[in-house]
Design a protein around this nucleic acid. Structure first.
Lengths: 181, 181
DNA sequence: TACTATACGGAAACACGATTCCGTTTGTCA
DNA sequence: TGACAAACGGAATCGTGTTTCCGTATAGTA
């Protein structure tokens, strides 16, 4: 690949990241191109469709979750590990409207492309939850399948709520609801 | 207003209700018209824009919340009143994807049109929360402003979650998180 | 029944954004 | 320094869905 091509690809990615974070799926290709300082054609040279470009954004963000889960697994206290998993994940999503919408499932992105990332996250996350359940630190019926649901709720509060950190209260309620009985 | 006009207006409303519930903001005017058995022009005769029609849908649904709040206020037990308020509201939204999206704030509807309905709901809802707080049945820091946030979370679970009633678990967690300390 | 204000239907005009296409420019290599 | 494949820019094209417009049909009334 030619040097300028690699450079432009990177510029497109950076611009897309910023604008997708601000506007979600609503970003226009032309705007991304302008912001990156390249032509529309160049965007299409690197990504076959708008969806492919945005899926790329989501994939990157998702990988961050896996890092967080891996780090949380190292925490001694089983409950703290769970709390950290949720809290850090929420923080990672804060300020990225596009990803928030993606988490909520309202953007029609090609989630197919990120199965692999999902699995990579599910493994450590499962271990964290299982450990907490065994230790009696959370409800006995909690499972890894609750994570998308709960994150979805927190995320939507984040997206919907006026500016501030209202989502922290929501998270707080959920964490307290997760304690046994 | 001529009799046929009134009849058609009603047919449009019914069709719009059904299709908005199924597809959200994505419904097409032509589809609504076909479903109602009228022409596109007739839809526009009764509602100046698509947004005006959909706002009408949301307004109707919202009024249902007020009825629920008013009924919940009659419940003796202060905690039960809160729990009922949330549970019944959630049930009212179940199965209406359009309204779910509206609650989550992702449809760009003209919410201005429903300020009045909002206020009508806030009054009884406030009384319910205040009573529960005074009775020590919920966290002392709970307020009526938590309702949109929490409903938003529940609603998004409903929309996002695969079919079933997963949202009941989310609601369950939230209600248990709302208990004092 | 004849008249007229209303209302109707749906083809056409519009709006808007994704994607294509091709003439031009640029990086790379001999 | 050519030569040429790779990459670029952005006008033009296409697709899709909303809204307008106007000739036709109908309810209501004398």
């Amino acid at each position: 690949m030619r040097a300028d091509a690699r450079r432009n690809r990177e510029k497109v990615l950076v611009a897309a990241r910023e604008l997708f974070a601000r506007d979600g799926e609503g970003v226009q290709i032309e705007e991304i191109a302008n912001h990156a300082g390249v032509g529309i054609g160049t965007v299409y040279r690197h990504f076959p469709t708008k969806g492919a470009l945005l899926t790329e954004m989501v994939r990157t963000r998702f990988q961050r979750f896996t890092e967080i889960a891996l780090a949380a697994e190292e925490i001694e206290d089983p409950y703290e590990a769970v709390a950290t998993l949720f809290t850090e994940s929420a923080i990672a999503v804060e300020g990225d409207a596009g990803f928030q919408l993606a988490m909520m499932g309202v953007e029609d992105l090609e989630w197919e492309g990120i199965e692999q990332e999902k699995a990579a996250f599910a493994a450590p996350a499962s271990r964290i939850i299982e450990r907490a359940v065994k230790a009696g630190a959370v409800r006995p019926d909690m499972s890894v399948d609750d994570i998308p649901m709960l994150m979805c709720g927190i995320t939507s509060t984040m997206y919907f709520g006026p500016g501030g950190g209202e989502w922290r209260r929501h998270l707080d309620l959920i964490l307290s609801g997760l304690r046994p009985n």
